[in-house]
């Protein structure tokens, strides 16, 4: 298998993602790690809550991986996304891409995270000290 696409309720493991993507055929591996930031527009974030429409989210992530394979000479693609309540500093998403040469890995990785944010049915709620908001819900 040249893709590994998963949604986890438990903390994501960066090392196991790197172990899976490593290959003697690769000359470069690009790893993107999304992390929970402590501030949004000057307000202190207490935690984030992620929710996914799991079955469809996996399908949409598979489509993105296929588009990346169609557009860049990449070898393996890993996308792990977390759901549930995440504290500041925790990891909601890991994307890893391997390729013979680095340019393809960088570009495909960027494409995957940018497209994931636009099309994959996963939602995050920001919880502040004085309230909470579903991100991007309102104009």
């Amino acid at each position: 298998m040249n893709t590994q696409i998963e949604i986890h309720t438990e903390p994501l493991n960066v090392q196991s993602c790197i172990d899976w993507i490593m290959s003697p055929h690769s000359g470069g591996i690009d790893v993107f790690i999304g992390t929970v930031r402590d501030m949004t527009k000057g307000k202190t974030v207490v935690c984030l809550e992620f929710e996914a429409y799991n079955q469809m989210a996996i399908k949409e992530m598979e489509k993105i991986a296929q588009q990346a394979f169609d557009n860049w000479p990449v070898q393996k693609i890993l996308i792990h996304h977390r759901t549930g309540v995440l504290a500041v500093g925790e990891i909601p998403v890991i994307i890893a891409v391997s390729a013979a040469h680095r340019a393809a890995a960088f570009e495909a990785c960027r494409y995957i995270i940018d497209t994931l944010k636009e099309t994959v049915p996963i939602w995050k709620k920001e919880v502040f000290e004085d309230g909470e908001v579903w991100v991007a819900a309102h104009p």
Binding site: M56, V93, K117, T119, W123
Partner: peptide, 10 residues
């Protein structure tokens, strides 16, 4: 059938 509000994963 599912209603999909604006997504915000990642």
């Amino acid at each position: 059938i599912a209603v999909i509000p604006p997504v915000s994963g990642g």
